[in-house]
Amino acid sequence: MRAQWILPACVMLLAANSARAEIPLHERKSGAEFMSPQTQAMQADDVSNPGMLAALDGEAFWKQKAGAANKACADCHGPAEESMKGVSARYPAFNASASKPIDVQGQVNQCRSERQQAAPFRFESRELLALTTYIGLQSRGMPVSPPDDERLTLFRERGKALFNQRLGQLNFSCAHCHEDNWGRKLGSAPIPQAHANSYPIYRLEWQDVGSLQRRLRNCMTGVRAEAYSYGSPEFIELELFLAARARGMSVETPGVRP
């Protein structure tokens, strides 16, 4: 009898803890579901998905020797199809040598500096986007699976606070649009739920591939806020929260977005 009350009590406690209603699991939708059938078709077909060109570049970079160590990614990791399977689905992860969480692009650059002894790639550079797209592609179709690592908890909680914090002259939080108003229209554009399961994406507005951080900076500029810098702790914290929020959804990298 008493056990019957435990679950409802837990649910009520959780609900009381969060300021607003989070999206129920069965209502979660990938951003692709809010797109026109034409854009969906462009993403679904590898021949017409422009993000696949970045993945092809990434495959070339994977095998290219670089740095003073004259090593390629493949020299340590072997074929990406095996070693990188599921990596993007679980990142950001806690990096013991840096004593902080790190995302895939941070991990690529750490390998560049430490293993290849080469200069790290610039954020949003063709090389970094190509490699992260190629690595992301190896997780396509796998569920987003953030690691169950206690060292990440504090950072993820901070990300959640950032997601709910009002920002900029227009004073919006991420949650105002993406939790309270998803499915409605902002001007002409339907508001998606902000799940980060398709990055890097090819965005038609950019006519280019870009990272999740570039997309977050766009939203911040939209609400007239000073955007966080690329690679900033805030972005990693937001990425951790977004990964937890999208847990179990299918990785779609490379996504196409309007």
């Binding site: 004073n171 007239r224 000073e226």
Partner: peptide, 21 residues
């Protein structure tokens, strides 16, 4: 307090407003 309607005539109590604004 939960409204998404911005304050059109307020300059305090805001976070990280971009320098131009």
């Amino acid at each position: 307090r939960d409204t998404s309607m911005p304050s059109y005539y307020r300059i305090d109590g805001l976070n990280r407003v971009a320098p131009a604004f």
